[in-house]
Design a protein around this nucleic acid. Structure first.
Lengths: 112, 112
DNA sequence: AGCCATATATCGATGGTCGGTATATGCTGG
DNA sequence: CCAGCATATACCGACCATCGATATATGGCT
């Protein structure tokens, strides 16, 4: 699973949201580092719905504009939890190894 | 950065390794869930070298077979550290939101 | 009047990964 | 004794998620 997809599911983890809301939420969550393109977002929403990870929650019209709200399915929540755990473990492994390497290099330079 | 690329850099975080060693290391690190294809690995090694994140450390011949060892550059270590931190934060956000959602749902069902 | 935010949708291009194939050596089980 | 597997690098076409751009429409701000 790629980062944009992961962040879309994360945006839906605690409440239903509509497409545009997901876009801004993802940008905020990632401190502006991940700007979802409209193409990416709506293609991903269709795909994730086909895969059964999200579903259409409800729709409403605001200012003559459609808002289509999506929510996580149980499958989606399970999948996201598994993916989050994988990310956490990978991040931990990388940090541990980098730390080990810095210690080794410091020792080699005679630094206490 | 995609997961395979991240894991390749992680494999090199604490010591130089050759291609095939990276492949087995990545599989072990991810509990067998990520099996690097030869095509992915060697293409990624070329690309990462061009980008300045890794470099050829040294080469040796074992059993008439070439072993080309790669190591992280300073740039690569910096990049990997930043990426690991991003992964950690994203995983944390997803887990926090999922937890919040479970509490809300439990309360809605009248569960203490 | 012009621009930006809101909101969804579609389309071609890009690029990292997948899956397979090629080449070569050495070890091991049947 | 030879077939298969592990080791080791390399290349290629295919796939698909994402990018970047464009389209359409409304409302608010300057």
């Amino acid at each position: 699973m790629q980062q944009p997809t992961f962040l879309i599911l994360t945006a839906l983890a605690d409440r239903p949201q509509h497409g545009y809301g997901i876009m801004t939420d993802v940008e905020r969550m990632s401190d502006g580092s991940v700007r979802l393109r409209a193409g990416t977002l709506y293609a991903a929403l269709d795909r994730l719905r086909e895969e059964g990870f999200i579903q259409i929650d409800h729709e409403e019209i605001v200012d003559a504009r459609l808002r289509r709200y999506y929510s996580l399915t149980d499958d989606g929540a399970t999948r996201l939890a598994a993916e989050a755990d994988r990310l956490r473990r990978h991040a931990q492994t990388a940090s541990r190894r980098l730390r080990a390497s810095r210690i080794t290099n410091a020792a080699a330079r005679g630094v206490s």
